[in-house]
């Protein structure tokens, strides 16, 4: 995968894995690929993967079982918190950006609803083709 070389790589690895967990591609309790396998698939150093794993373990999202490997937590509350944080972070960015342009709250809501409806229609028509 392509990393942004301006941001610490271990942080980007964490983001990639958290995204997969939130999206449900990595289920609660699922075993993560071996460290070296992750390193090869992401084209990063083994130590960088280990640093990312260490932080994910500290944050309680990943649990390490000696000799067996690393697993996604089975605590769904932790995953839900992760999900909420990500949603909030993205909405915050969007809201602050639009707010700076003096677009009032009601208009933001209206535009968002209109946009979502339009996307839904687009997806529907794409599905038919």
């Amino acid at each position: 995968m392509n990393f942004d070389d301006k941001v610490p790589i271990y942080y980007q690895i964490k983001t990639v894995i958290y995204d997969r967990i939130i999206a449900g591609e990595l289920a609660p309790g699922e075993k993560l690929p071996a460290v070296r396998q992750l390193a090869v698939s992401l084209t990063v150093n083994v130590n960088t993967v280990q640093r990312a794993l260490r932080e994910m373990i500290e944050e309680g999202v990943v649990t390490s079982q000696r000799g067996r490997g690393n697993f996604v937590t089975t605590d769904t509350n932790v995953i839900e918190t992760l999900r909420q944080d990500l949603i909030t972070r993205n909405l915050k960015q969007l809201y602050e950006r639009l707010h700076r342009l003096n677009i009032d709250d009601q208009e933001i809501i209206n535009e968002l609803v209109t946009y979502i409806e339009r996307r839904a229609r687009q997806n529907e028509s794409n599905g038919k083709n």
């Binding site: 070389d5 301006k6 941001v7």
Partner: peptide, 10 residues
């Protein structure tokens, strides 16, 4: 990673 974190540069 310290270079990236401290300088914000690639």
């Amino acid at each position: 990673d310290d270079v990236r974190q401290e300088s914000g540069k690639s």
